[in-house]
Simulated scan of single mutants.
Amino acid sequence: MTSESSLMLLPTLFSLKGKTIVVTGAARGLGLAQSLALIEAGATVHALDLLPSSTLLSPPPGYNYHSINILSPSLGPLINSLGPIHGCIAAAGINQETPALSYTEEDFSRMMAVNVTGVFMTCQAVARVMVKYGTRGSMVVIASMSGSIANRGLICSAYNASKGAVKQLAKNLASEWGPEHGIRVNSISPGYIVTDMVEQLLATKPERRQEWADQNMLKRLSKPEEFSGAAVFLLSEASSFMTGADLVIDGGHSAW
């Protein structure tokens, strides 16, 4: 195959036309930005989030919103009702900055429940539908560079532990579901992203905007839209031989 013919295939490789994708945490922030990118690539997206409605004022065709707690027993039946599913992004998560000596068992358990158990239950529900319909699909779980490093000046031991668990979860699900069902599972580890929730934090601690930017090689913070290409790549045939991997997108923060 010539290089010219390979280039001609690129639009097809990245196309998600006819694909149905489930995205959790998709009412705003990273999950919403990635949902819109998937729709632009041709997918139908079922956006799941705890908020009663999406923050989108004019949802595009292909964006279907479902208000649900990912820890609810109704998660599985909802996902099963959607028909054949070709992929998912498990982006729902929470953070809490608390010194380790002050962390309560209740808060720690909640962090693990949402960030780890919620991701697992989402992937399990989607995988069951894939197996039911014989779909060889792809899953993406949102981890974090914080799953591999200790953040300088940010006190979030429970969050970092949960994201480390998510990375390991992706590898193990890939090892289970790949050989028999052809289901790929990868993780994305973002650096600092300026979302609505982060903006609220920066409003109380504005010095962190520059401090965090200075800690990476690009000297700036990222926007949710900068992870859209990774979502399309991992859910499309462009990454057909990629599974059990972690895609680090942190501006070089953890490469020092």
Rank of each mutant, 00 (worst) to 15 (best):
P52C: 03
T44S: 14
P59D: 06
G93V: 01
A92R: 03
S58A: 14
G83A: 13
P60Y: 06
A41L: 05
I89T: 03
G87Y: 03
G83E: 10
L50V: 04
T44I: 08
C88R: 00
N64V: 13
Y63I: 12
N80S: 15
P77W: 04
L51E: 01
H86A: 11
S67W: 02
S72V: 02
Y65G: 04
L48G: 01
G87F: 02
P60Q: 10
S58K: 14
V45M: 13
N80L: 09
L56P: 01
G83Y: 08
H46S: 08
E40V: 02
L56Q: 07
P84V: 12
E40D: 15
S58R: 13
I79H: 04
D49Q: 12
I39R: 14
S81Y: 08
L78V: 13
A90Y: 02
S54L: 06
A43N: 09
P77E: 05
I70W: 01
P52R: 00
A41K: 08
L78G: 12
A47K: 01
P77N: 07
L51R: 14
G93Q: 06
N69C: 10
N69I: 03
I89C: 01
P52G: 06
A47S: 10
L51P: 01
S58I: 10
L57M: 11
H86N: 15
S54K: 04
P61N: 12
T44H: 11
G62F: 10
I68E: 13
L38R: 03
I70H: 01
D49Y: 12
A47W: 02
L57F: 05
I70T: 02
Y65N: 05
